[in-house]
Computed example of a mutant assay.
Amino acid sequence: MNYTFHWRPAFRALPDMLWGALVTLEVAVLSMVLGVFFAVLLALASGSRFRALRAFATSWVELARNTPALFQIYMAYFGLGSLGIYLDSFPALLAGITFNNAGYLAETFRGGLRAVPPTQVRAARSLGMGPVQAFRLIVLPQMFRVVFHPLTNQMVWAILMTSLGVVVGLNNDLTGVTQDLNVKSFRSFEFFAIAAVIYYLIAKFVTGSARLMAWRLFRY
């Protein structure tokens, strides 16, 4: 080994990498918000009495869970272009990760919905609540209590999946910024080692914050 480490250029570029980390967080948070929204709808559709809704939900879940996340991002960026729908790198990455999140979370939410006893819904209806009100005030809070920790794991997975944006030309997230800095300086180990530490710290911050939230919200 005759490689000489030079950490100073990497540390000087740390502010740029931290700005890239903010873009990474932006994509991850948006994909989780959208993913949770679609996952709830898919979980409800999977239990619907309408066969078309069940088939749609099943197809989404099967595709999301049994194909690589990279292919899903490719389909959003390249595949939709074949149909005349052109997305830039950021929305394509967001669409791909959202699709993946929704597919995985739909199964998690479906299990969470089944964990809520039907008697509680009937009790809420007997108190005068409508179906939507009972679902919003009785079912959803209990479901999210059950799925909270899997939801946290999916958030960490979404953060790590944002690194795939570099393959569709996204160059302002953490991985994209790191790759650009590497191309300019050829200090691969130094830049990617710091980027790995930043990803690690973000993931640990998310899991630590989730544990604190769980302690505050679910101690009773």
Rank of each mutant, 00 (worst) to 15 (best):
F38W: 10
F50V: 06
P9T: 02
V40F: 15
T175P: 01
F56N: 05
N2I: 03
M1D: 08
L164P: 07
M161D: 09
Q142V: 01
I138M: 06
A28D: 03
R114E: 15
G20C: 09
N171I: 00
N101R: 07
L164H: 01
L63V: 15
F50R: 06
L63G: 03
S89R: 04
V27T: 05
A210S: 13
L83W: 15
N182Y: 14
R49S: 14
R211H: 11
L127W: 08
P117F: 05
L25I: 12
A57D: 04
A102E: 08
S89C: 02
G169S: 07
A123S: 11
F218G: 03
S46H: 08
V168I: 15
A214D: 14
G128W: 03
A13K: 03
R125F: 15
A92C: 07
T119G: 15
S163D: 09
Y199T: 03
A158F: 13
T207I: 12
R125C: 00
V177E: 04
M75Q: 05
V139C: 09
S31N: 05
G112R: 04
R211K: 04
P118A: 09
I202E: 09
A210T: 14
F135Q: 04
N66T: 04
R110L: 14
S89T: 11
W60R: 02
G208N: 05
F135V: 08
P91L: 05
M1A: 11
S31Q: 01
L160V: 01
M129Q: 10
A69S: 10
A193Y: 10
G47M: 10
F99W: 12
V167M: 06
R54D: 11
T58A: 14
D180R: 14
I202V: 09
V29A: 05
P131L: 10
L160P: 00
T98H: 09
M75T: 12
A52T: 06
V29L: 12
A214F: 04
Q133S: 11
V27A: 02
R65D: 13
N66G: 12
P9K: 06
Q72M: 14
M17S: 08
W7S: 07
F11L: 15
L164R: 03
A196M: 08
A43K: 02
T119L: 15
L212H: 04
K184D: 13
G130D: 08
A193R: 00
S48W: 12
L127F: 15
F205H: 01
L87Y: 10
F135A: 08
I85K: 05
S188F: 13
D16C: 06
F5V: 15
L42P: 01
N2F: 07
S163E: 09
M213G: 02
A203V: 05
F144H: 01
M143F: 10
P150A: 04
V33Q: 08
L137G: 02
Y104E: 02
P131N: 06
F5C: 00
E190Y: 11
Q72S: 07
Y200G: 00
V27N: 03
